[in-house]
Amino acid sequence: MSTRDRKVLIEIDGVSKHFGEGDTRVDALRQVSLDIRSGEVVALLGPSGSGKTTLLNVIGCIVEPAAGRLTIDGEDVYNGRWLRGDLRRLRLDKIGFIFQFHNLLPFLDTTDNVALVLELAGKTRRQARERAVELLEYLEIGHRRDAMPAQLSGGEAQRVAIARALANNPRIILADEPTAALDSKRAGIVMDLLRKLAAEQDACIIAVTHDEKIFDRFDHIFHLRDGRLNGNGGEDGAATG
């Protein structure tokens, strides 16, 4: 299937966002437009303060834009205002997050960290744990299913975080510096894994990263500078800035 045939999962049209007013006003995003299709693995690059994290937060429905339109998996989510009241439910069902420092809950063991999002989505405890163990096995971390986060290595913890992000079969996975805490070998393994998952689950992955050693694992790399977006001229040239 060519990229053109794939469904657009994220449609960002003329999104702007600023913080502060007057002299202290900072334009974090200026008229950003971007389409991301299923199966794509996309990187957001840019210097500090360029708006990468803000864009990630807008796509994750964490930060409200000032203007523009946002569509997720075919559903209009923002058009001058939020169109859904239950954004947390939207995140729970459609978006998975992978953090720089895994952010596993320290008081839950590996399995329950993954099972939690399934229980929040309405699965029974038994169903949630079964699915969590299945995911951990798939990510080759099943042998650490009873370990507490503090007992895991960086790579193991990041794989558990990925399992958690994937638990509800989200269509969109947002990753903030997913390999920053890993050595180059493990970073490569994690990125290969994400690529594989994106292909298998027909999801898209958007990662904010500075990690040059994993640039070759992305389908598209978009550069942000002063809140403006420029694509790398990938297959579809989806970005306009």
Partner: peptide, 16 residues
């Protein structure tokens, strides 16, 4: 606080 922020981010409702 960071754990609570994570809970919110992954979709935990306020009642949780």
């Amino acid at each position: 606080l960071k754990q609570i922020a994570t809970l919110k981010l992954i979709g935990a409702p306020d009642r949780t």
